[in-house]
Design a protein around this nucleic acid. Sequence first.
DNA 1: CCATTTTAGTTTCGTTTGAAACTGTTGCAA
DNA 2: TTGCAACAGTTTCAAACGAAACTAAAATGG
Lengths: 187, 187
Amino acid sequence: MPPARRSRTASSKSASGPAELPALHLTRFLPYRLSVLANTVSHTLAKLYEKRFGITIPEWRIIAVLGGGETMSAGEIAQRTAMDKVQVSRAISRMLDSALILRESGDTDRRKALLTLTPKALAIYAEIVPMALSYEEEVTDALSIDERAQLDTLLSKLQARADQLAARPAPVDAQAVTEAVAETVDE
Amino acid sequence: MPPARRSRTASSKSASGPAELPALHLTRFLPYRLSVLANTVSHTLAKLYEKRFGITIPEWRIIAVLGGGETMSAGEIAQRTAMDKVQVSRAISRMLDSALILRESGDTDRRKALLTLTPKALAIYAEIVPMALSYEEEVTDALSIDERAQLDTLLSKLQARADQLAARPAPVDAQAVTEAVAETVDE
DNA sequence: CCATTTTAGTTTCGTTTGAAACTGTTGCAA
DNA sequence: TTGCAACAGTTTCAAACGAAACTAAAATGG
């Protein structure tokens, strides 16, 4: 039995469904809220990056992890940026075109390409980091010190749980449900 | 002068940049964290929706706002779902194809189309809402009751601030910075 | 050693996206 | 009224995406 649901100002529709339909308000639905917030933030930031440096978010992320001047492989970048290898591969090829990155194939393992930022990219890094942090600060200025700590905790816990749930295989069977619905319905 | 920065275990690179480069750890950078979390959650949910009902997130959102049986225009849907009109238009046309939505042009204003869910979509609604809420609960189970309240507050505050910052026009000039960087650099 | 599997990264293909242009409709104003 | 601006929604086009197929280079192991 699912625990008692939000008893908000919702379900009071006139002639509604069968029985006890739990209502859902998109604006209170966590996945929706996270998606909208992340989108707002990313989009704002993306426009800044694009406008000033002509780079996209994937490129920014790569610059961010290589900004210390270190060298790493595409796979390692993928891990550290939470992007998949295709995304990384494409971002790198754009960055090669715009001379932001240097690629040399390692000699111990010639599958792995060693990637380093060019001076040009390092200069962007030096400019973009303060800008990024400053935007972050403007956002978190909406919060008290306590709240910022809370946010940190909450995001970590939620991410851990979300990862866990994402890893879990499909919960029940699929086809059956679809068919059940199709049956119930369609006149 | 930017307030003192995170003094984490970060900047201790060996021979790093010019002077006081504030370090940036992607994993502690709020926009990044939000983006990754929202992505994980949305992606998991999208797979559930797709697998069971053959619908995408935009379609789900439309079903969510029309699920009470009410009728509204595409523009209103766009507002309530935080999607833009193009996204809504496309989702609606998919839903027309799969007989999930009904469109009749209003007679007072023939630009506005009146949209209503079909019984088929309402049946999906009845099945999908518990599923969505149950997933949400599984995620928030990672939090205490107090923390859930905190989360609600934090998300609201952050969204409000992010909206405010997004509305603000471009902060400074653009070209200048790009050129400055180009100059500093490229050997 | 040679054959097989695994790993690193790229390419391809079909879809999705977002911005901008476009179509049709209404409201407004001279 | 006619003419024009604003609005609702759709279409177009080029970029971006994800999944799966592919290429090339190690690692494994018989």
